[in-house]
């Protein structure tokens, strides 16, 4: 267990400004404050070497939680233990254990070339030159840094900057890497590069990774386990596959044909959802009938030219979860 979170809560308070005439003048004299509970009593644990997805809609409290895990914020109540330390109290020791990338904000030296930022980090974390050189070499290759490593950070594109940030966070080989929306706003190629890199440092180097993202492709490709929160509370914690199984109560099969009218198709195991001359979609409950049985039934009775079984879509599952907003009992937690 490398990360343990118990009953973690964070409140923010700010002056309460009521709209209306002379609102500004009045606010000079009021002391009213408004409290927002950004994280509301969450608990979870993360194993060494895991790659966990931390999901939730905007404003759910993901970034706030990550900031408490990294020691940037001090919890209002509850405890966080990371590699045996309380992050905000053992700040310096914690700093060498973790790396963090926040998609919205760079950690690099804005006015200096990317290479200078890496050198400063090398010195700050007292890396020996040989290790630095080999590691930077490997990362440069993985992320194609060559073309922009000597450009000042302020002139980098978002995708380039993000790659730079990732390298800066991993240079000193921390045991844990926090990624808060690292792929937001990036194009497909840049996203792919970043995914590859994250997969490599997790699988290849055993780094524990906590990833927040709105991109379900990121989750499907990288995470086995997810924690989903909303309004500061945990909605689901557990295996991605289990989540789908639990939420996907029906699956669709699409058949194509050329030799007969698809509108005539019917099956004892599945219901026709839509049909035209060349194509029909049928829906079945996988709990009642296994997919191979449906497929066999259809292919044995009709001269079908093509058939596809649609994968349950994580995006849909998540959407459903966010709208219902009821916690799901964890089944088959990876831990």
């Amino acid at each position: 267990m490398i990360i343990e979170v118990a009953d973690l809560t964070k409140d923010f308070s700010r002056p309460d400004v009521r709209p209306g005439r002379f609102a500004g003048t009045r606010s000079l004299f009021t002391r009213a404050r408004k409290v927002t509970r950004a994280v509301d009593g969450i608990s979870f644990q993360i194993d060494d070497g895991e790659l966990i997805g931390f999901l939730g809609p905007n404003g759910a409290g993901k970034s706030t939680t990550i900031k408490m895990l990294t020691g940037i914020l001090v919890p209002t109540s509850g405890t966080v233990t990371v590699a045996g330390q309380v992050p905000w109290r053992d700040r310096r020791r914690n700093a060498r254990t973790i790396g963090a990338v926040f998609g919205q904000r760079t950690q690099l030296w804005y006015d200096l070339p990317l290479r200078n930022s890496f050198e400063i980090i090398r010195d700050l974390y007292s890396m020996d030159p040989a290790t630095y050189r080999t590691r930077l070499g490997e990362f440069t290759e993985l992320l194609d840094l060559d073309e922009f490593i000597d450009t000042p950070v302020r002139s980098l594109s978002l995708g380039q900057r993000m790659r730079g940030d990732l390298v800066a966070a991993m240079l000193y080989a921390p045991r844990i890497l926090y990624l808060d929306e690292p792929t937001v706003g990036l194009d497909v190629v840049a996203k792919g590069k970043i995914r590859e890199f994250v997969a490599e440092i997790n699988a290849g180097r055993g780094t524990t990774v906590i990833l927040t993202t709105h991109d379900m492709d990121d989750v499907e490709r990288l995470c086995r386990r997810v924690v989903i929160i909303d309004h500061g509370k945990i909605l689901y914690e557990g295996d991605v596959g289990m989540l789908k199984a639990q939420y996907v109560t029906s699956r669709d099969v699409v058949v194509h044909c050329t030799d007969f009218d698809a509108t005539t198709i019917s099956s004892p195991f599945a219901q026709v959802v839509s049909a035209d001359t060349f194509k029909a979609t049928l829906r079945f409950d996988p709990e009642v009938t296994a997919a191979p049985k449906v497929v066999h039934d259809l292919t044995s009775r009709y001269p079908i030219t093509d058939l596809s079984l649609l994968e349950p879509d994580l995006e849909d599952v998540i959407r459903q979860l966010y709208t219902e907003r009821t916690p799901v009992p964890a089944r088959g937690t990876g831990a």
Binding site: R92, R93, R96, W109, Y110, D111, L112, N116, I120, D123, L124, Y125, S126, M127, D128, T131, Y172, A173
Partner: peptide
């Protein structure tokens, strides 16, 4: 690799860090 440095006192560590950061500041 950072094992030896952990034994440095915070003050010495800060002095070292300030040299590094100051250089970066001037360069910028």
């Amino acid at each position: 690799m950072a094992e030896q440095v952990k034994t440095l006192s915070p003050i010495r560590e800060d002095l070292r860090a300030s040299r590094i950061l100051l250089r970066a500041g001037w360069r910028a």
